[in-house]
């Protein structure tokens, strides 16, 4: 654990970003509970800086929501936590990000294992062109999590159960995953992530391509998953953030503007920009 070191980093060097609440929790606050920690994270696409020094801590088993107008860097920040920015040509991350206190940008870190630990669900459901079973078994196979067929069956079943999809698909596991409805596909993607037993699940606008019913199913699921996982969810939908997150962070133009308990952010925002945003003055 290097909490002190993390805390020594200045909050934000970007002058425009004034925060009433520090992104990072005070040292006394159950330091062992901090799951993800970012300090002064900047992300560049080529020469352009998309994220201007963001620092925050995310606690175990909480649901953290990232809100903010389109293009403010939510996805960019989220992708830094499982190093998916590495796959974007020209993207560069500076600053420090730790998972369980370990610097994930350290050269000794195995990205493959990091991504198993920090799972991700994308904006558009992206099941593989394989059967439902194979979709879920995919990651488990890659990481050798099942010794034999019956182990794998168990992994698949429990993952699908956790994603709340088992009852709907148990009779057609061999059907193609792409044949499911949008909401089912997204839950399949969640099951797929769950199957490699991560501790953190990153969700980038997981419901933006779904209808309201599928959305509410996923929201219930998030509340359920919270028991076992730390969840970071990017959302455009403020009701969604209000309904299913514990804490909310508001980003604007690459800056972290405000972070706080969800109830407080939505009822009593401390920053003018936050208030303007949640009251719909800009979107």
């Amino acid at each position: 654990m290097n909490m002190t070191q993390t805390l020594n980093v200045p909050m934000s060097t970007s002058g425009s970003s004034v925060k009433t609440d520090s992104g990072q929790l005070p040292a006394g606050n159950a330091s062992t509970n901090i799951k993800l920690s970012a300090s002064d994270v900047r992300v560049f696409y080529g020469q352009a800086e998309a994220l201007h020094g963001v620092s925050l801590d995310i606690v175990k088993n909480e649901v953290m929501a990232f809100i903010g107008p389109s293009g403010c860097g939510k996805s960019t920040f989220l992708r830094s936590f499982n190093r998916m920015n590495d796959t974007v040509a020209g993207a560069r991350v500076t600053g420090k990000i730790t998972v369980d206190g370990r610097d994930i940008y350290d050269p000794s870190v195995d990205v493959v294992l990091l991504r198993a630990q920090v799972g991700m669900v994308f904006q558009k459901p992206n099941p593989f062109p394989k059967s439902i079973y194979e979709n879920v078994a995919y990651g488990a196979r890659l990481h050798g999590l099942a010794a034999n067929k019956s182990d794998m069956d168990e992994v698949v079943e429990s993952s699908l159960r956790r994603a709340g999809l088992w009852e709907e698909v148990k009779d057609r596991l061999e059907a193609p995953g792409t044949g499911l409805s949008g909401g089912q596909q997204q839950r399949l993607c969640i099951a797929r992530a769950v199957a490699v037993s991560p501790d953190v699940i990153l969700m980038d606008e997981p419901c933006s391509a779904l209808d309201p019913i599928a959305t509410s199913i996923i929201e219930e699921l998030i509340t359920e998953l919270k028991k076992n996982y730390t969840i970071v969810i990017v959302t455009h939908n403020m009701q969604q953030a209000a309904r299913c997150s514990d804490r909310t962070t508001f980003f604007h133009l690459g800056d972290l503007v405000e972070i706080g308990d969800t109830a407080q952010i939505f009822t009593n925002p401390q920053q003018k920009r936050t208030e303007d945003y949640i009251t719909g003055r800009y979107g």
Partner: peptide, 17 residues
């Protein structure tokens, strides 16, 4: 589509996998 590759990479698949 890139989303397909991303899905696999995000699960911890290597490039060749």
């Amino acid at each position: 589509p890139k989303t397909m590759r991303d899905g696999s990479l995000a699960l911890g698949g290597t490039k060749s996998e």
